[in-house]
Amino acid sequence: MSIIEVKNLKVWYPIRGGFFNTIKGYVKAVDDVNLSIEPGETYGLIGESGSGKSTIGKTIVGIERPTSGSIIYKGEDVTKGRNRKKLKYNRDVQMIFQDSLSSLNPRKRINDIIAEPIRNFEKLSKTEENHRVKELLDIVGMPKGSMYKYPFEFSGGQRQRIGIARAVSTHPKLIVADEPVSALDLSVQAQVLNYMQDIQKEFNISFLLISHDLGVVRHMCKNLSIMTRGRFVEVGTREDIYDRPQHIYTKRLLAAIPDINPRNRQEDTKERLRVEAEYENDEKAWYDKNHRVLDLKPVSGSNTHYAAVPESNSMVEQGGK
């Protein structure tokens, strides 16, 4: 049973204009997206900026309202405020943001920041609360002395760990992590990702890991989807996506990742330019006439792999490249 299921989610922002400031159209930030996350798994959501990743994340935690579609948690639709309250959804689902400096209140001390969600959902005595904050700081490898400091006194990686400590303070079932390591150096990024994995093992938390970094997602996620223009172009396991990409958009993303072997440079560039040329020539075939991503279809020979490929596409076969 999945911990959460997003069904036919649409989040459209109206574009207003004209003399009467009427709705002239929509930014279809999320346009009919389905996904489900298993307990204790890290699900990856990859896409370039503006593809709609954050909007999905924010809609799941309830910061943004869906235009249509449902989000099923414990069998009930939590896009309805009533159900959210009943299921203590806001306690069970937390979020970590990319920009740790602006998402932590600069005028509050770390212990207040971490304890805030606890105070919202539990009644603890001051000493119990302090004890809990110390525990949480310990989990993310921060010294106890950090409790009485302010966010600006920490480096980016440390702040991100504080964000994680705050998110886990209510023992959530799901954490939406929106680009949690994108602003960090490689070495610090490794540390934060390790902590996320530790916490996952310890509390059996599910993550929705939103990232534009294909390397990070490959490291962390068994299942993932690739998103562009508000829709999923490809869904599957990491092997499906990284070893047998079907959609031209996925191929293009994969081709763009720099290879850390300098000897592959020429071939990589050649391959990239080839994919890029293919993308440019056949772009129309991969989208409908409104530039909308086609519907996902199962890739033959697999029950995990789906791709938004054209009807008549002969490439829709396992291993076809």
Binding site: L186, A190, N194, Q197, G215, H219, M220, C221, Y242, I260
Partner: peptide, 12 residues
């Protein structure tokens, strides 16, 4: 510290 293609959930 670069995330590698290796096993899922390897420690970095």
């Amino acid at each position: 510290s670069i995330p590698q293609a290796g096993e899922l959930g390897d420690r970095l």
